[in-house]
Nucleic acid binder design. Structure first.
Lengths: 144, 144
DNA sequence: CTCCGTGCAAACTTTTTGCAACGGG
DNA sequence: CCCGTTGCAAAAAGTTTGCACGGAG
């Protein structure tokens, strides 16, 4: 079976003293279905049955609870994806033309090299690294 | 000698049929001096002698010419840095508390592994990668 | 019955644009 | 002179908030 996403989100929300409402559940479903970071307009297009302001509020709550991550791309509208705790560790292909983002995973050996580099990096700095994330910037198929 | 940044920017702007005005030169100087991505308010604090709207316009022109890169962090105000063509290839430590960003460079062997991974990644996808950029997300010294 | 969550509309923040004045080439 | 650049103020885009209603526990 795949990990029980809704169960995990429910726990995360409880920890934040928040409820797993219909609206929040639906946003999680939409994010799972998208498989890439999406914008608020995209969520509405995908059939989110709630007002724009509720989407913002619910995503903010989900983000605080650790279920969702907010990104920005080259265009300037926020994009949202499931937190890594709920999805696979991955990175992003970012199109500098349209701002679109696709997910990508890297070979294990590269991840290992990265992890090692991260460990070394924080030894030299007064900075506690929680996560790493690689952006490959270029032009997507649609824009190319 | 260090590379002649102003000469290079001048050429880049000419290629875009734009002039290297006082204001643009000053922005480049401020970015060089900062040594990390800065926001518009920070540029004003650092003594930019031009209106906010001119800063936006000039940074947009410099970005189009390839001299400046625009980023966003966890807070939601744009941040600007010199393009890699004018600076050393580097990556970023991003503070999830305050949104601040610091520059960091990686060991050559990691860069090589990354470069190889990038090459492989784009072979499998309809996506032309121009550049890569690693974000190490965590908590900076001030916030920790 | 009590709260929390929601939609709507208004407020706010950041960024972009219109317009008239300025200034370097 | 002339055209690009600037500052100011207004507009636009994205996001957040106030408020009153409605629904879940």
């Amino acid at each position: 079976m795949t990990t029980d996403i809704h169960g995990t989100v429910d726990q995360q929300l409880r920890r934040s003293r928040q409820r797993y409402t219909q609206g929040r559940r639906q946003l999680v479903d939409l994010l799972v279905g998208a498989g890439r970071p999406v914008t608020i307009p995209e969520l509405l297009d995908l059939g989110a049955r709630q007002s724009q302001s509720s989407i913002y509020r619910n995503l903010a709550i989900l983000e605080q609870a650790g279920a969702v991550r907010r990104l920005t791309s080259t265009d300037d509208t926020g994009r949202f994806e499931l937190a890594e705790e709920l999805s696979e560790h991955h990175h992003h292909l970012v199109c500098s033309e349209c701002g679109g983002i696709e997910d990508i995973t890297l070979p294990d050996e590269v991840e290992e090299a990265l992890h090692e580099a991260v460990t070394t990096a924080q030894r030299d700095r007064d900075f506690a690294v929680d996560a790493h994330h690689l952006e490959l910037v270029g032009t997507c198929g649609d824009c190319g």
